[in-house]
C-alpha cells in the first residue's frame, strides 16, 4: 500500500470501522500530521498489522503522501458471509459524494 502512495499528493482511504457508533456512521480523519489512533499497543503480530500501524510505518519511513485522509464507515456486522447492511449501503452512496467534494476541494487548491 505504501508503495502506491509514491508521487501522490492526496490519498483517500476508505475502510470499515468498529468504534461503537451507529451502523452506517461516517467519520473523516485527517492523518496527514497525526496518527489515526494514538494506541499502537495492539501491535501483536503480522496477522493483525492494522491500518494505523501501516500508516505510522509509512510516516517513519517518509512515505506518506502530501495529504492523507481516512474515511471510516461504522459496520453493522462483521460475521463471516453476511451481506452488506442497508445502513452501510446507504453510507457508501453518501461517501461517494463526500469523496467527490474532497477531490473538488483539492483541485481548487492546486
Amino acid at each position: 500500500m505504501l508503495e502506491s502512495f509514491a508521487d501522490a499528493d492526496l490519498v483517500i482511504l476508505v475502510d470499515a470501522m468498529q468504534s461503537g457508533g451507529k451502523p452506517g456512521e461516517i467519520r473523516r480523519f485527517d492523518v496527514t500530521d497525526e496518527p489515526l489512533s494514538a494506541d499502537l499497543s495492539s501491535f501483536s503480530s503480522t496477522h493483525v498489522f492494522n491500518l494505523t500501524e501501516a500508516l505510522e510505518l509509512g510516516r517513519a519511513l517518509g512515505q506518506l503522501p502530501g495529504r492523507l485522509l481516512v474515511f471510516g464507515v461504522e459496520a453493522a456486522n462483521f460475521d463471516l458471509g453476511t451481506p452488506i447492511s442497508p445502513e452501510v449501503e446507504s453510507a457508501a452512496r453518501e461517501l461517494d459524494g463526500l469523496i467527490r467534494q474532497e477531490l473538488d476541494h483539492h483541485k481548487s487548491l492546486s
Binding site: F43, E53, E56, A60, L61, G62
Partner: peptide
C-alpha cells in the same frame, strides 16, 4: 524498541532495506 514503527523512526534506511 517495542515494534517496527519505533525501529523505523530511528533506523529508517535499515527498515527500508528489510522491506
Amino acid at each position: 524498541r517495542h515494534n517496527v514503527v519505533e525501529l523505523a523512526q530511528d533506523h529508517p534506511d535499515t527498515v527500508q532495506r528489510g522491506l
